[in-house]
Computed example of a mutant assay.
Amino acid sequence: MTTGMPTPQPSDRPRRSRLRTFLPLGIAVWLVLEIWLLTVVAGEAGGLTVFLLLVAGFVAGCVVIKRAGRRAFQSLNEALQRGGSPERGGGNGFLMLGGLLLLIPGLISDAVGLLLLIPPLQKALSRYTERTVDRKLRAATPGSFGDAFQQARIHRPDGKIVQGEVIRDDRNEPGDTSREQRPPLTR
Rank of each mutant, 00 (worst) to 15 (best):
R15V: 05
G159V: 04
R67M: 06
W36R: 07
D147R: 03
G83L: 02
T49V: 15
A124T: 09
A68W: 01
G113L: 00
A111I: 07
L115C: 14
G113H: 00
L23Y: 11
F73T: 10
H155F: 14
I104L: 13
G43F: 07
E173Y: 14
L76K: 07
S11L: 10
K123V: 10
G159M: 03
V41T: 06
G61A: 07
E173F: 14
L38T: 04
L114W: 03
R70N: 14
I167E: 11
E87P: 09
E87D: 09
L185V: 15
R131H: 11
N92D: 15
K136F: 11
T129M: 14
E78N: 12
H155A: 15
G4Q: 03
R15M: 05
P24G: 00
S85M: 07
G47Q: 13
L102Y: 04
V166C: 03
R13N: 05
V32N: 01
L37D: 01
S11R: 12
R168Q: 15
K136D: 08
G83F: 06
E44T: 15
P119S: 03
I161F: 13
V32Y: 04
Y128C: 13
L101N: 03
V55F: 05
R88E: 12
R168F: 15
Q9S: 12
L97P: 00
Q74C: 01
R20W: 14
L54K: 00
G175Y: 10
V32Q: 02
M1W: 08
G175H: 11
V162R: 15
Q74E: 15
A148V: 14
P119E: 01
G83N: 06
R156W: 08
L121K: 04
N77A: 09
